[in-house]
């Protein structure tokens, strides 16, 4: 029976540079289209229709039309991207980089600033 069949693989491996990265010093660029984390790109254009919250399979998004707030519970979010696909105003985006670890539960809140009153031309 052949012994040390792995020798060839090991020699090759020894001559090569490591297959691993020195994370976090060296980070990998996420591939295009990777689903890492959901971000609110521009709250200014949001019309608070709430479709993202309705479409969300885990109910991680809460939209309050009266307060003009958009809230995300990141620990509930499963990064499926349904909300990004459905958003009519293209406010939401999916970033390739993953969200970092948490030490405490927190709900991310985005508030739309009241628009300056349109000045009267007359």
């Amino acid at each position: 029976m052949p012994h040390l069949v792995i020798a060839k693989l090991l020699t090759k491996s020894a001559a090569r540079k490591p297959s691993t990265r020195l994370y976090p010093a060296e980070k990998r660029a996420p591939p295009k289209g990777a689903r890492g984390r959901l971000v609110m790109k521009q709250i200014e254009t949001c019309v608070f229709c709430g479709v993202c919250g309705k479409k969300c399979p885990t109910r991680a998004i809460a939209v309050k039309r009266t307060d003009k707030t958009w809230e995300l519970d990141r620990l509930k979010c499963i990064v499926c991207g349904e909300c990004v696909e459905i958003c009519p105003k293209d406010c939401l985006a999916m970033e390739g980089e993953h969200a970092t670890a948490f030490v405490a539960k927190k709900i991310e809140t985005h508030v739309q600033k009241p628009k300056p009153a349109a000045s009267d031309p007359t």
Partner: peptide, 15 residues
């Protein structure tokens, strides 16, 4: 797994 991420967007949970 990198290939899976590139084509589907997820590494283990394809979604």
């Amino acid at each position: 797994l990198d290939l899976i991420e590139e084509t589907s967007g997820g590494r283990v949970i394809f979604g």
